[in-house]
């Protein structure tokens, strides 16, 4: 294969969506849940989902990450082998494998995403062990490496997560997800519940990791500043519908839909 073909091949890979969603719907009642959501996500792209509480952001994230089945619609993902996998036609075993290898999920509350009863090192190593790494030295090295990457003192590798501060727990959760080098990460309000200075550091860290590892990210947030900082594209949700979608700067600087305008104008300026 010539260099030109290689470059061409890589370009084709980037041209094709990593993650494709069509008419995704799950309703708990009229306008409760989410309906008619379609989008494509490309490798290395960060998609922000913003909206008020109860607008269906978290429901959408659960549907996307294979945690609850939709009423209607299709989610497909392009695996490392290049084949498209229909998430809800695949077996549960395949979905689980995906969730712990090529995907990550960062919960809003780190207590939901971490095993609080085992040490930080074991939390980081769990995905590797699930993938069949059976060498303690390698697990240990990966643990120390990732603690450093998320700016936690490696000396704390044997401490329980509950002795960590909220910001450290959140960073530990991120390390735990990224250790398997995923290609797609879902984040549910990763900075919720943290004070502003810790938020800023976490966002800075996340932005660095996303760029370095070329991650595709779907991030749910109600904080437009977070969206502006991290997201390439935005989807604004209201009452289970996507009311506006487009480039982040475009939506935040020139919102078209009345609700987006309201959202943008509601941001407090210190």
């Amino acid at each position: 294969m010539s260099a030109a073909e290689l470059i061409h091949g890589a370009a084709v890979e980037l041209d094709q969506p990593l993650f494709s969603v069509h008419d995704l719907t799950r309703l708990y009642g009229p306008e409760k849940g989410c309906q008619g959501v379609s989008f494509d996500l490309y490798p290395g792209e960060v998609l922000g989902i913003v909206g008020e509480s109860g607008s269906g952001k978290s429901t959408l994230l659960s549907l996307l990450s294979g945690r609850c089945a939709p009423d209607r619609g299709q989610v497909s993902y392009r695996g490392k082998d290049g084949a498209m996998l229909d998430l809800y036609a695949a077996s549960e075993a395949q979905r689980r494998t995906l969730l712990r290898t090529e995907w990550g999920f960062v919960e809003q509350n780190p207590r939901d995403g971490l095993r609080m009863g085992v040490s930080a090192g074991a939390n980081i190593g769990e995905r590797l062990m699930a993938q069949g790494v059976r060498h303690y030295g390698q697990l240990r090295a990966a643990g120390i490496d990732w603690l450093q990457q998320v700016e936690i003192d490696p000396m704390r590798i044997d401490d329980l997560p509950r002795t960590f501060s909220g910001g450290m727990q959140q960073r530990l959760q991120i390390a735990r997800n990224l250790v398997s080098s995923p290609r797609l990460v879902f984040m549910d309000e990763p900075t919720g519940g943290l004070d502003v200075s810790v938020q800023a550091r976490l966002l800075d860290l996340l932005r660095g990791l996303v760029r370095d590892l070329d991650l595709a990210v779907v991030i749910v947030t109600h904080d437009l500043a977070v969206a502006r900082l991290l997201a390439d594209r935005l989807m604004v949700m209201r009452r289970s519908h996507v009311v506006e979608a487009g480039l982040t700067d475009q939506i935040l600087d020139d919102p078209q839909h009345p609700y987006s305008q309201l959202l943008v104008s509601s941001v407090l300026q210190p």
Binding site: R115, V118, S119, G121, A122, E126, M129, A130, R134, Y136
Partner: peptide, 12 residues
């Protein structure tokens, strides 16, 4: 995978 988490904790 989680079965090894316990063994890991033991060694740690």
């Amino acid at each position: 995978g989680v079965m090894h988490v316990k063994l890991y904790e033991d060694i740690a």
